[in-house]
Design a protein around this nucleic acid. Structure first.
Lengths: 233, 233
DNA sequence: ACACTTGAGTGAACACTGTAAACTATTAAC
DNA sequence: GTTAATAGTTTACAGTGTTCACTCAAGTGT
């Protein structure tokens, strides 16, 4: 771990570039995200940035990883903010609310990771999948706890996913050494898709004209979805 | 309705431009969607296109309307393909499957309307909302039929949406003269968000690495979601 | 049938974009 | 103190959306 002066300096400018990029992203959307704009902002010539990122796509990939990480940290913070004694169901609801609030407050970031961020660009899976999993794992972990404490008694349909799906989930559990039941993982997946649907429609502006009070809608769905899985709420 | 020769010609090139745009979109994603590329393909100089669309954004908006319309037509075709005698539940399942298949087969189109299509661009609501509603209305209509024929007996949570939401739905029913029960509209909204979550995660590639067999996952959710609302399937 | 108007299309230009190559100057290493 | 690596610049190319001034053909009015 040779922490030479140069390497530290290099890492610092790399961070500065990413920070500037995310600021521009938040201010002007993906339109403002250009090598030249970042360079201008930071006081360098555009080609200089190529010392730090091989291309704009490369920079975007790095941003995506950062954004997923930030989201995962928000989620983990929300899980822990009610104290370790809190029932897992309370933690889970905090987590889901935090997920939504983060998406609504940072629509550009959300669009970057869950939309079609930059023209023609889609992040390489082998890089994004692990960081996606981190936030996802929190949700699954809490569902597992809820199951063990019998706060939730998974309904039959959640206990037996379709064969093809079960195989994939099983492989995930074994492959990643992930000590969790198939039911919890399946509930996590189902819940993830359902909450993602609500949040993504809200962020992109399609939901508000229909439901009006998106807050109330979300809270109602929060209960409905968990109850639908077998929560004794 | 003066159908002068010139006006017909004009409309024809407008259509040709849009068709070329959608082809480029399907072939190369939003990256290939450029005024100059379209002009090149179609054998015109770039500025000529400004006779037909005020800007690229304007063209994109027109494309979005077309895409929503195409989706609505797919949905309506799927509703009717099983014949008028078919039970509404069968029609609804056909509709939802058609929705998914369309999205999976036309990811660029799907991204255009439900993602962050072009850098910094978001379609004006007053234009998109009506075309969104058209497909949505089909789903709601079938849920209403299912309710009337008692194929579905809405669970309590679907019969009483939260107050703020109910007000908005009620306003929608009255404002648009839309002869449908609040419960059906609410179920439609909830189902819409949930299916959208699955489909959008699948199209953008986040779901497959987790569930493996997305087909089986979708079919299972199709049943689960309807049953969760009170379907006697 | 002829003049007049309208509108489609072009060419050149401006201000941008990502990126590559060659070069300079600074900094670390021996 | 010499040498090697590396940060950064200049210049350049090919592409983008868009505007302006212009040409030329098609339709219209008399």
């Amino acid at each position: 771990m040779s922490e030479t002066r140069r390497e530290r300096q290099r890492e610092a400018t790399r961070e500065e570039i990413k920070a500037t990029a995310r600021r521009l992203l938040a201010e002007q959307g993906t339109a403002g995200l250009s090598i030249r704009a970042i360079a201008r902002e930071i006081g360098l010539t555009p080609p200089a940035l190529y010392r730090y990122f091989a291309s704009l796509d490369d920079l975007v990939t790095a941003l995506i990883v950062d954004v997923f990480t930030a989201l995962a940290e928000q989620i983990e913070a929300a899980r822990d903010c009610a104290g370790p004694q809190a029932p897992p169901s309370a933690k889970l609801m905090n987590v889901l609310r935090a997920y939504r609030r983060w998406a609504v407050d940072n629509p550009a970031d959300f669009g970057l990771i869950y939309g079609t961020p930059i023209a023609g660009y889609h992040a390489p899976r082998e890089i994004t999948v692990p960081v996606v999993i981190r936030g996802f794992a929190v949700i699954v972990g809490l569902l597992e706890e809820m199951t063990q404490q019998e706060e939730i008694i998974p309904v039959p349909s959640m206990q037996m996913p379709p064969p093809g799906v079960e195989a994939s989930l099983q492989a995930m559990i074994e492959g990643d050494g992930y000590p969790v039941s198939v039911a919890a993982l399946y509930m996590g997946t189902v819940g993830w898709t359902q909450f993602h649907g609500i949040i993504s429609l809200e962020v992109f502006g399609h939901l508000p004209p229909v439901v009006g009070d998106t807050n109330a809608f979300f809270e109602a769905q929060l209960r409905n979805i968990l109850i639908g899985m077998g929560w004794k709420g």
